[in-house]
Design a protein around this nucleic acid. Structure first.
Length: 343
DNA sequence: GCGTGTACCGAATAAAGGTC
DNA sequence: GACCTTTATTCGGTACACGC
């Protein structure tokens, strides 16, 4: 199947997505930022993906500069492979407090510029592909709505990464069905190979409450991708917070920005009711417009909170250690007591 | 259907965890 | 140990899942 012509939707037959034709030459895009912005906006419209200009450190990110610098270094995948995001980040001269600059740049490039780069820099055609270093996607098994047999349930997926510049690849439509093969088994699950559209994936299916079928010789299995977007997002294996795991764990310290945010949010709330959605951006701008002296006031509060956290964390660790030692001693006592009794 | 709990969104920051 | 990546935190509105 050939790529779609200029201006046509990137969606092909049977839900397969294709790169649109390039809107300009790579050289022209690099030379002329006007061409870049115009073609980038049109590109996202054609791809039906969300376009926005990210803000980092209170300033709009210069996507043109980002595109030029990354493609100059061989493109997204090469920059990832050679770990050059820090080098790219240095060009933007973010404040030293922007500690995750390289990660944020990579994230924005991936969602806003990767497909654009593929078409214009590498002249990619045909089905859309995602970077070979994919966003982490956690798979889990729902314990409800099991199909009759084998009792493996649903495959659910989720990701904490930015919304996939949808549609990233020839992925299964939610609700669609596919087949796979059990390639091995372990105590409470199976190793499987699954075909999703044009992709073959290897993974694990497990059922912690039920024994594995005795016969795990290669056989076809059926699975279904759940059909609500929400459930995909919400079923992620997000790491639980330390506080939730242990309610006694001290509350992490807040940065100066956190205190500034809370104060500003309260003020904006009374000044601009019903505009809460815009507050984060407004507060971010206010923060970058603060004088060094004003900022220092909040940062000092942050420093004090940091001291508080350190203090509480040490106390917490000591108490925990004490608790563990007591438990170990108690267990040792019980064991020796049991030994004596058996003798 | 209602109440409760929780993820998500936005931006900035820093701690914690992970990798080499 | 240096560097990279992920997560928690601030807030309120919204949407959704789930139990009763």
């Amino acid at each position: 199947m050939s790529p779609v012509a200029k201006g046509e939707s990137s969606r092909g037959l049977q839900g397969v997505h294709y790169y649109p034709a390039p809107l300009s030459s790579h050289d022209e895009i690099v030379k002329d930022s006007v061409v870049f912005w115009d073609t980038l906006r049109r590109f996202h419209f054609m791809m039906n993906t969300r376009f926005m200009i990210p803000v980092i450190g209170g300033k709009e990110l210069d996507l043109h500069l980002l595109y030029v610098e990354v493609t100059r270094r061989g493109g997204y995948e090469k920059v990832v492979e050679e770990k050059k995001w820090r080098e790219v980040g240095n060009i933007f001269m973010f404040s030293p407090t922007t500690t995750s600059a390289s990660f944020v740049l990579r994230k924005h490039y991936r969602s806003l510029l990767f497909s654009y780069e593929q078409v214009h820099c590498f002249k990619k055609q045909g089905p859309i592909c995602s970077p070979s270093a994919p966003a982490p996607v956690a798979f889990s098994i729902s314990n409800r709505n099991y199909s009759d047999k084998p009792e493996l349930g649903l495959v659910e997926y989720s990701s904490k990464m930015p919304k996939p510049a949808k549609p990233i690849r020839d992925c299964p439509v939610p609700g669609s069905e596919g087949t796979g093969t059990i390639t091995g088994k372990f105590d409470c699950g199976y190793l499987v190979t699954v075909r999703l559209g044009s992709e073959v994936l290897n993974g694990v299916l497990y059922h912690p409450e039920e024994p594995v079928l005795s016969d795990a010789s290669p056989e076809p299995i059926n699975f279904r991708v759940p059909d609500t977007k929400r459930s995909c997002r919400r079923s992620g294996l997000k790491r639980r917070s330390r506080r939730r795991e242990d309610p006694n764990h001290p509350k992490p310290n807040r940065s100066g920005y956190n205190f500034f945010f809370a104060e500003k949010h309260c003020k904006f709330k009374s000044l601009y009711p019903n505009r809460e959605r815009e507050f984060t951006k407004m507060i971010g701008e206010s923060w970058s417009n603060l004088t060094a002296e004003d900022r220092m006031v909040y940062q000092n509060i942050g420093v004090k909170d940091k001291e508080r956290y350190k203090r509480e964390l040490e106390e917490y660790k000591e108490k925990k250690k004490l608790r563990q030692t007591t438990e170990v001693n108690r267990d040792t006592e019980l064991i020796s007591k049991a030994k004596k009794e058996s003798q």
